[in-house]
Computed example of a mutant assay.
Amino acid sequence: MKVLLYFEGEKILAKSGIGRALDHQKRALSEVGIEYTLDADCTDYDILHINTYGINSYSMVNKAKKMGKKVIYHAHSTEEDFRNSFIGSNQVSPLVKKYLVSLYTKADYLITPTPYSKDLLQGYGITVPIASISNGIDLNRFKRSEEKEKKFKEYFKINEEQKVIICVGLYFERKGIIDFVELARKFPEYRFIWFGHTPMYSIPRAIRTIVKEEHPVNVEFPGYIKGDIIEGAYSAADLFFFPSYEETEGIVILEALASKQQVLVRDIPVYKGWLEDKVNCYMGKTNEEFEELIKRLVEETIPDTRLAGYRVAKDKSIERIGHELKDVYEKVIDDERSGKKAQIRLEN
């Protein structure tokens, strides 16, 4: 079995969760011994596993179908998580949904990160079989390291007395960036750091203004930072606060959990079944609730959920994800073989 992993616009999307999903897929397939290629011109593959939905992605699907290849579409995107992102996203989101449905229905099988996103896709009227498989997490990469934590603290000049709250995400309203900044105003004694970057020309003026000018001095937007510094931040910070309104999973949450960090998220449907309030994380719905929880979590006056959170990440390790992907690949290949046998019997 050979799989073509196709990812359109890899350089552009490398800083996003979808970009990290591709890295996880490569690792996962290697872990279970499945041969893969990233060469879009390759023709000797069995399955096209496609991650993106641009014009070239559409062409790749059509090309694969004409060659008689099986197609698995990784449905990272929905209309719901496209809204409240780029300039004009809300106006064109119905068209995006229609386009996504046209693409996804060409596949032999769909993979999507959570039961929630699976429900959304089925709600679109899609009847293609769908498997819910996490994007996974590299536990070793996010294992606590004093050296990485030191690099993080030196980079941001953090002293031992300072309390630090972090978030990782694109500059989207959907990600809760407005709430993150508003809550930072309530805690001038804490440092709030938002890791991540989105080209300024692509986001609404209100969000550009917040990032560039209208935020309190205790909020920092250092941009996209990878490697030891961000990995050190995950474990060295006092809290990972992710107030996103809509996700298909949220790879950054898995990264925080794998770092044994205390996690605070918005109570939204995507977390049902794997995150549980006061058990492996804390959840809030309003800024008033977040304000109270941030204070109590940073000052450690309520129970710690780090170890239970780590167990969630462990259940979604890359090794486990590799086996789940392999199961879907084998099912698709077996279905093809069964179909060919049935066709031969009909012809005879």
Rank of each mutant, 00 (worst) to 15 (best):
G17R: 04
K186L: 00
P303D: 03
Q25M: 00
I230W: 06
A236F: 11
E249S: 07
A236Y: 08
I230L: 13
W194Q: 09
S77P: 00
V298H: 06
V263L: 02
E255K: 04
E292K: 04
L139M: 13
V168I: 15
F142D: 12
N287M: 15
I130R: 07
L95A: 14
S338E: 15
E189W: 06
R185M: 06
I253Y: 11
G19W: 11
I18H: 09
V211T: 01
K278R: 15
Y234P: 14
Q122R: 10
T52M: 07
D334Y: 08
I12R: 05
D41Y: 11
V312P: 03
F142G: 14
T305N: 09
P199M: 13
Y124P: 01
A184M: 03
M60D: 00
I302G: 08
K15Y: 01
S134N: 02
G232A: 08
S338F: 13
L293P: 02
G19R: 05
R320D: 00
A131R: 01
E291N: 04
K341Y: 10
F156Q: 08
K151W: 05
D46C: 07
Y73K: 09
F7V: 04
E249K: 04
C42F: 02
K2W: 02
G223A: 08
L22Y: 05
I126N: 09
L257V: 03
F242M: 14
R345H: 01
I268A: 08
Q261T: 14
I251N: 15
N135D: 07
T286D: 14
G309L: 13
S145D: 15
K314V: 13
L5H: 14
Y310G: 08
G169T: 10
I225F: 11
I203Y: 04
I251L: 15
G169H: 13
I34E: 02
I72D: 09
H215V: 06
E231A: 12
K63Q: 13
E300K: 13
I230A: 05
L38R: 03
Q122D: 00
Y36Q: 10
Y73G: 02
E292Y: 10
L307W: 04
K15H: 02
E8G: 06
E247F: 03
K340I: 15
I50T: 13
F152E: 05
G54A: 07
V279F: 02
I133A: 03
E160R: 09
A256W: 05
V219A: 08
F7K: 04
T286P: 12
F242P: 07
S244P: 10
N51F: 14
D304S: 08
A342F: 08
G250K: 05
F142N: 13
Q343K: 14
L139R: 11
V312H: 07
Y245A: 04
R208L: 05
S59D: 09
F172T: 10
K70M: 02
Y310R: 03
N218P: 02
T301C: 02
Q262N: 06
V265H: 04
S93A: 15
V96P: 02
E336V: 07
Y99K: 08
L183H: 03
E231G: 01
I225C: 12
P115T: 01
R185H: 11
A342E: 14
